[in-house]
Amino acid sequence: MRVLVCDDEQLARDRLVRLVDTMEGVEVVAEAANGREAVQAARRMQPDVVLMDIRMPDMDGMEAAACLARSEQPPALIFCTAYDEHALDAFRVRALDYLLKPVSRDDLSAALARARTLTRAQRAAVANELPQAQASQRRQHISARTHRGLELVPVEDVRYFLADQKYITVRHSGGEVLIDETLKDLEAEFGDLFVRVHRNALVALNYIEGMEQAPAGHHQLRLRGLEDTLVVSRRHVAGLRKVMLRL
């Protein structure tokens, strides 16, 4: 069984690695110092289990768990943390177990034994039951499945969300990705960072440069760093003007 260990403290990672090394049929295939590194390492190494801390910089364990659950073959998640107040949130993201530090060998062995009984297909079936808003707090990253695997886009880099039938195009500083979410859910989660300019578009407030009237008569929005513009629907023009006055 392949294990990935994620903790922002080197000593904590070293201890978990030593415990795993004493167990037969289990090996540590990668280590990570935060949730972002864990997601990237999981994409490369395809571990069966991730031992995950919760409070970490850049991306915490809960957000990383939500991202990993979107993988085509999600690993089993076992949280290893010094804080017991996150237990309910951990099981909301379908964690297999929740171990308090200092993690004992017996507890870890029992948790890994339970993980061994789950097939990847079973873990994928559980992940598919997760709601769209998997993390207990607002995400800092948007996760998308691409031909390169699971990609993470920082929310602060997103220029706009554009709905097109079933999928949402996420335009960001490095290009664009497609996600299977709804504008309604994105607006509910990021409503203070983005503004609705059309029934199919949410735009990042930080990147709005100006609004102008096009020769065809409709209004369009210019965004900093982008050559393309977005159409502003009539019903949103007045509200957008008010928002821009506050920027």
Rank of each mutant, 00 (worst) to 15 (best):
A188C: 12
R148N: 11
V17I: 14
P47S: 08
R94E: 13
S173F: 02
L186V: 05
D107V: 08
D84N: 15
E176V: 02
R148D: 13
G191W: 10
S233V: 05
V158F: 13
E85G: 09
R222D: 05
G210C: 08
D164A: 13
C80S: 07
E9D: 03
L183K: 04
Q73R: 11
L223H: 03
V153W: 04
T81I: 14
V237L: 11
D58R: 08
C6A: 15
V155L: 14
S71R: 15
L108M: 00
R139Q: 02
T117D: 12
P47W: 05
Q140E: 06
T229I: 04
P131R: 03
R44E: 13
A65S: 15
N200F: 07
L150Q: 00
V50M: 11
V20H: 07
A216H: 00
A163M: 07
V177Y: 00
M244W: 03
H219R: 08
Q213L: 00
L77N: 04
L16Y: 13
A163I: 08
L223W: 08
M52V: 10
E187K: 04
N128V: 08
A38G: 01
H141C: 01
L108E: 09
S136D: 10
D48W: 03
V3E: 09
V231F: 00
E37A: 13
L19N: 04
N128F: 01
A121W: 00
D157V: 04
R105M: 06
I54A: 01
V50G: 10
A135R: 13
R116K: 15
A216C: 05
C67F: 03
L130W: 01
A30H: 12
E31M: 08
E27F: 09
V26P: 03
P131Y: 02
V195W: 10
